[in-house]
Design a protein around this nucleic acid. Structure first.
Length: 527
RNA sequence: GCGGGUAUAGCUUAGUGGUAAAGCUCCAGCCUUCCAAGCUGGCCACGUGAGUUCGAUUCUCACUACCCGCUCCA
């Protein structure tokens, strides 16, 4: 992306963020207390939008399918589940940072070194009176010049200089002392610089179950789940036993997951608390590869149905070496966000890795008896795992549009319009009397509101001029507005009596429709 | 995690070491017959905490959050 394009996209993103706050789609979590890093709240319209997405996903993937069952697992997760899955232990490598180069190294991969460590307590610059007190050390291998240690140390201390014109060479080192070191992993093999203490980078939120449990009680440890998938795998047997269902079949779940991301970024895109929409689709081993392709197509179709066109999606066939070690095939479905092309969903063929691991750790049989082949097998699994909040953000980015419109006087102005598909739009229809100081109009509009409310989200508005009300609805993406005028009341004859203006968001076109046809028409449009 | 930037009303922006300004939005009233009309009035802000100072929104430091670039993303 060129600088100019990048700047334009940053501007676009800022406009989107601003609109989301102004109209109540997304707020920063705990904003009145300064905000909580990586956490966001959905306001009234965002909550509707997200609900529409989840409801549609659930309907398409669970309710309209005989071969997929729903699950709603607990967020607090037994530590053994996550030990089996590899989330505890496997992904908590201690890391060290090089104090000089800022490089990050895995502690267990640093080769042990021996030599002479040169320790310093700080540095100063006589002319300017600047000084810093900070312990630092450089490891020299046998035969290396001790001036190398001093040069490295000066470079280290120079990064604290406020006046960058001072050369590191002019610094006086303080408190030099040496120490013989044997088999130490505290130094960077690249440059001899001291490293930070090893730090755990487990990205899971840890907690203790039971009000009286103290922090030291290891048996009380539980985690907030880092993915919804594990409760599906650990409940696999119960779901099978309680439902007469045969391979292939899936278990679907929508729910919150938590990852203590080192660096949350890009608005709600990478949050510490996020919602997933996941399916684990269990199958025979020989069907895994084909099903992965089939699911990719199904998922792409889904995005199209909610208003994210195929042209704005990218399919990444994750190459060997970049996939998780147990995955034989993975597709990432990516979307062109203003801040870059980023993943919305992963469709992964995970083989029998998960169920095998849980069988091994729980010592409970998780194999299925296959009637066709008369043998027991651990099902393989294909996992379409979608980011719910990411998809909401994609819907918002995709919908956002600024259009220049020219009024009759030739005056140009910008119309901001969220072009949500009617299916996803938080508000389906705005109902308004043309004038609020004419009780007959208000009464009729209220009747229409009451008639539609049981079937869809309706927004009643009577304040300000009609044009302003239309534009307000444009900005929140309401696809239809219905206006009651004097013709509705029969002032222009019976032909127009009990008809209303139906105004379309995208084209701003208006048509006349009978009140009696309104409900069926709108329901058809938003289904 | 590193480096850089930013923080004034719901939004967008002015401004100042001495009682903080505007446009839009929003609310109320009047008026108004289909695309952000007009008039009147109203609500509402210097991110948090220290320090310097007689006095700090302004200067300094720390913290927090957000943005950008790296890094990371099981």
């Amino acid at each position: 992306m060129s600088d100019a394009a990048s700047e334009k996209n940053t501007e676009l993103m800022e406009k989107i963020v601003s609109l989301c706050k102004r109209r109540g789609f997304v707020f920063q979590s705990a904003e009145i207390y300064g905000g909580l890093n990586g956490c966001w709240d959905y306001g009234p319209l965002g909550a509707e939008l997200k609900r529409n997405l989840k409801d549609y996903w659930w309907r398409k993937n669970v309710q309209e399918r005989e071969d997929i069952l729903g699950l709603d697992g607990s967020i607090l997760t037994h530590q053994d589940v996550l030990k089996a899955s590899g989330h505890v232990g496997g992904f908590s490598d201690p890391m060290c940072d090089c104090l000089l180069s800022k490089a990050r190294l895995r502690a267990d991969q640093i080769p042990a070194q021996s030599g002479t460590a040169y320790w310093y307590s700080g540095a100063s610059h006589e002319e300017s009176g600047w000084y810093v007190e900070r312990e630092y050390a450089v490891l020299l291998q046998e035969g290396q010049d001790e001036n190398k240690a001093r040069k490295t140390a000066r470079q280290y201390y120079a990064q604290f200089l406020t006046d960058k014109r001072i050369s590191p060479k002019k610094l006086e080192l303080a408190g030099e002392k040496t120490e013989e070191i044997k088999e130490s992993t505290r130094f960077n093999p690249e440059n001899g610089s001291l490293l930070t203490e090893p730090r755990e980078f487990n990205l899971m939120f840890k907690t203790h179950v039971g009000a009286s449990a103290d922090d030291g009680d290891e048996s009380a440890v539980a985690y907030l789940r880092p993915e919804t998938a594990q409760s599906i795998f650990s409940q696999f047997k119960n779901v099978m036993d309680s439902n007469r269902i045969k391979l292939p079949f899936g278990i679907a779940q929508i729910g919150k997951s938590f990852r203590n991301e080192i660096n949350p970024r890009n608005y709600t895109f990478r949050s510490r608390e996020f919602e997933q929409m996941e399916i684990e689709f269990f199958c025979r081993p020989e069907d895994g590869m084909q099903l992965t392709d089939d699911w990719l197509e199904l998922r792409l179709k889904f995005y199209e149905e909610i208003g994210i066109p195929r042209e704005h999606l990218h399919i990444l066939d994750v190459p060997d070496g970049e996939r998780a070690h147990y995955s034989k095939k993975t597709y990432d479905i990516e979307y062109e966000f203003p801040f870059g092309i980023q993943e919305l969903e992963g469709v992964a063929y995970r083989t029998d890795y998960d169920l095998s691991k849980h069988q091994e750790h729980s010592k409970k049989p998780l194999a299925v008896f296959d009637e066709d082949t008369k043998e027991k097998l651990i099902p393989h699994v294909v996992e379409p795992s979608a980011g719910c909040d990411r998809t909401v953000l994609a819907l918002i980015c995709e919908a956002f549009d600024e259009e220049t419109v020219t009024d009759e006087k030739g005056k140009e102005e910008v119309r901001t319009v969220m072009r949500f598909s009617p299916r996803m739009a938080p508000i389906k229809v705005g109902v308004m009397p043309l004038l609020k100081n004419k009780p007959e109009l208000v009464e009729k509009a209220r009747e229409i509101q009451a008639m539609l409310t049981p079937f869809m989200t309706v927004f009643y508005d009577e304040t300000a001029a009609i044009g302003r009300r239309y534009r307000r609805q444009d900005e929140v993406g309401t696809p239809f507005c219905v206006t009651v005028d004097f013709e509705t009341l029969g002032e222009s004859g019976d032909e127009l009596k009990d008809t209303v203006t139906l105004r379309h968001r995208d084209s701003m076109e208006q048509e006349r429709i009978a009140i009696s046809e309104l409900r069926a028409y709108l329901l058809d449009q938003i289904a």
